[in-house]
């Protein structure tokens, strides 16, 4: 007998099945991204080009570049994320593969978690490559240390990948999907983007007032909200 509120063996089995299915979706998505490396390369070069364009647009004012390095870095990640998120659902749409998964049936929550985590891994990888480039281009310094920079990067990318995966699934069903995704995604990401930029600015420029923890906590809260809400809504989006 299990006490009231305690998970039953059936609940546990369902939880294990969800985790196993999520792991399979992650493996599948990362395998497909690896096989289509041209797409990853294109996203990376697009992000690097964006960083370069910001430095050209601002000119040789190194102080201004260093001050805004965090903003430029996150805009480059955000703009590139639209490419990678759109691509992750284009491969699902190609032969009705997503429909195939739902008809097996694969739990919609496993599909969401698997795809969002795979997108998070890719975006974080992109961010890790972009940080040294931003540091070199804009003359910024990582005052709070690389591990702290990576933590902020992971939280910021997670805040993009959860709603990004949901909205990519919605946009994928529309004709003007390439236009629709940024239109849907960017407004909802504004609070998280502000948090990520502020936290990264403190990582770059130092944190004399001890504000970094507050911004990091705020990012964690945004992530909890985004991931839970998107997890609940994704099933409705992929059914028809």
């Amino acid at each position: 007998m299990t006490a009231p509120g305690e998970p039953t063996p059936c609940d546990r089995a369902r939880g294990v099945a969800l985790l196993t299915a999520t792991a399979s979706v992650i493996r599948k998505d990362l395998l497909l991204e690896w096989r289509g490396r041209a797409r990853i390369n294109a996203t990376l070069f697009f992000a690097i080009m964006t960083l370069l364009l910001f430095s050209f647009a601002v000119g040789p004012e190194t102080k201004s570049l260093a001050q805004n390095a965090a903003g430029y870095l996150w805009l480059a990640i955000l703009l590139s994320s639209v490419l990678s998120l759109g691509e992750s659902f284009r491969i699902e749409n190609e032969n009705g593969a997503l429909e195939g998964l739902r008809l097996i049936p694969v739990d919609a929550r496993a599909i969401f978690l698997g795809k969002a985590i795979a997108n998070l891994v890719l975006l974080t990888g992109l961010g890790v490559l972009l940080i040294p480039i931003a540091v070199a281009l804009y003359g910024a310094e990582i005052s709070a240390g690389f591990p702290r920079a990576v933590l902020v990067l992971v939280l910021g990318c997670a805040a993009i990948s959860a709603p990004g995966t949901l909205y990519a699934a919605i946009a994928n069903q529309a004709r003007a999907r390439d236009v629709l995704l940024p239109l849907l995604l960017f407004p909802i990401l504004v609070p998280a983007l502000v948090g990520a930029v502020k936290a990264t600015q403190l990582v770059f420029q130092g944190d004399p007032m001890g504000q970094l923890d507050s911004w990091t906590t705020l990012l964690v809260i945004f992530n909890l909200m985004y991931w839970l809400l998107c997890l609940v809504l994704f099933g409705r989006v992929v059914e028809e």
């Binding site: 599948k28 395998l31 497909l32 096989r35 289509g36 491969i91 190609e94 032969n95 009705g96 593969a97 429909e99 195939g100 998964l101 008809l103």
Partner: peptide, 11 residues
């Protein structure tokens, strides 16, 4: 079994 193969092209 339909005209949609439900396959991933790179698998």
């Amino acid at each position: 079994v339909t005209h949609k193969s439900h396959l991933y092209e790179e698998m």
